[in-house]
């Protein structure tokens, strides 16, 4: 399944090192992302998985330089195309955004202006970064619409966003993200609000385009079943921290972290019809009231005194596969190989 050449994995498009993003609140400093490290290779899709409050969306916004003040990146590095994005000026970030890094949001309304025709928006988006004639920009926009599977793109170019269905609007947003052939796309739950058959159409198209143009993508989602079908690599987040990362197939088949295991087992299809689901007890802790030691220790069935006592969690590594757990599951030789 791992079609990307081995070299692509060696030279990552994006490397995040020890990223920490904080939000000051009246009750204290909330660490929405705490010491996150991962990297994404060209032509590969990294699934960033977590529940609400896990910090997965904030990670996306941090990479884009779109963290809402007073929130800010308090530490770490984001290496992209030989530069540290954390240290870029606002102007430099603006020229990177949309050109080298593009973002697709859950709600296409974040990208689309309701009072402008699609053609106007796309042509402007191209000419904001490249000085090319209008006619050429128009042609390229039309081709992009065709690429994402919009039927009769010539006619649809002059439509307004509200004249599209929800699924088609999201395709337009994706087409705009693809206009400059970015080397990295950050997709924040772009298909969550769509119907299953429409979601599948878009995912099939995305998967094809990623491989075709050798783009890297970070797919932010809470839906493990989609991630397991779409992504090459996976990073599981919990309460602002990375708990497990590795090749998607291996992590999902033999999760090391009890939280990853719990997430997988929460899916109804993992239990026999009509039987109780294996649920994770309790709920995600408040960001200002995290448990001592391992953040998952208050919900973990394997937790003991060692987990609660140890404030710095150990990061165990097995090649590219990493997990933060004192008592990991499936110990012993790793099954499966790439």
């Amino acid at each position: 399944m791992h079609t990307a050449p081995a070299a692509a994995r060696l030279v990552p498009v994006l490397t995040v090192e020890d990223l920490t993003t904080v939000f000051p609140t009246p009750r204290g400093l909330v660490k929405a992302v705490d010491g996150l490290s991962f990297s994404v290779g060209a032509g590969r899709v990294m699934g960033l998985v977590g529940e609400s409050g896990s910090g997965k969306s904030v990670t996306g916004y941090s990479i884009m330089g779109l963290v809402e003040p007073p929130g800010h990146i308090a530490g770490g590095r984001i290496l992209f195309a030989g530069r540290d994005l954390v240290r870029q000026s606002r102007t430099e970030m603006r020229s990177l955004r949309g050109r080298a890094i593009a973002m697709i949001f859950q709600d296409p309304a974040m990208t689309l202006n309701p009072v402008l025709r699609i053609s106007t928006q796309m042509v402007e988006a191209i000419r904001a970064h490249e000085k090319i004639p209008r006619a050429e920009a128009w042609k390229r926009s039309r081709d992009a619409l065709g690429l994402v599977g919009i039927p009769s793109p010539d006619e649809r170019m002059s439509a307004y966003p509200h004249e599209f269905s929800g699924g088609m609007r999201q395709r337009v947003a994706i087409a705009i993200a693809l206009l400059h052939r970015p080397s990295l796309i950050i997709a924040d739950e772009p298909t969550t609000a769509l119907d299953v058959t429409i979601q599948s159409q878009i995912l099939a198209r995305m998967q094809l385009l990623m491989k075709q143009y050798d783009m890297a993508m970070i797919w932010i989602s809470h839906d493990l079943s989609v991630v397991s079908r779409l992504c090459d690599d996976i990073a599981v987040m919990y309460a602002g921290r990375l708990v497990e990362t590795g090749l998607a197939d291996r992590v999902i088949a033999h999760p090391r972290h009890p939280y990853t295991r719990g997430l997988i087992d929460s899916l109804p299809s993992r239990a026999r019809r009509g039987e109780r689901l294996r649920q994770i007890e309790g709920m995600m802790p408040e960001p200002l009231d995290l448990p001592e030691g391992c953040v998952f220790s208050n919900r973990c069935p394997r937790a003991d005194a060692a987990c609660r006592a140890n404030p710095v969690m150990s990061v165990s590594t097995y090649g590219a596969w990493q997990w933060r757990c004192v008592h990991p599951l499936n110990e012993g030789p790793v099954h499966g190989h790439s």
Partner: peptide, 15 residues
């Protein structure tokens, strides 16, 4: 075809 399931094998998206 779109049944959310995690069962080891990768199913392609074919909507």
């Amino acid at each position: 075809e779109e049944l959310p399931r995690i069962d080891g094998e990768r199913r392609p998206f074919a909507a």
